[in-house]
């Protein structure tokens, strides 16, 4: 089994192919891999509780870990308590730690 780190940078309301990333992440998790989705830039817009059409709640249900970049949240004036409670705020340092683990595939979208 492998570690997968998907770095999602796109606004889910602007880029419908974000759902393809979510489907891929969930499928990899279902096959027993460790999967993390790191939201950065406009992708953090989908982390808000008010983002009703976001696919992230279903992704959380599949067991994928979702992290949201603290810098991107601050830039957009989004407080952590506005986000889905299971989505954790993380720093870019944590992303580096994740992608330099052995047996890890890092995919940017």
């Amino acid at each position: 089994m492998s570690n997968y780190v998907f770095i999602e940078s796109r606004d889910p309301f602007d880029s419908p192919d974000c759902s393809f990333l979510a489907d891929t992440a969930a499928a990899l998790k279902n096959r027993g891999n460790t999967v993390t989705v790191f939201l950065v830039q406009n992708a953090v817009l989908g982390a808000r509780k008010q983002a009703h059409k976001s696919v992230l709640p279903q992704l959380l249900e599949s067991g994928v870990t979702i992290l949201a970049d603290d810098f991107s949240l601050r830039e957009r004036g989004i407080q952590s308590d506005e986000c889905q409670s299971a989505i954790k705020t993380a720093s870019i340092d944590q992303l580096v730690d994740l992608i330099v683990q052995e047996n890890t595939k890092a995919v940017w979208h």
């Binding site: 830039q41 870019i92 580096v96």
Partner: peptide
């Protein structure tokens, strides 16, 4: 694009580590 700055933030964080 913001991706350039994110890339540079990753580079900076990695070097700092």
């Amino acid at each position: 694009k913001a991706s350039t700055i994110t890339a540079m933030r990753i580079v900076s964080a990695a070097l700092t580590k």
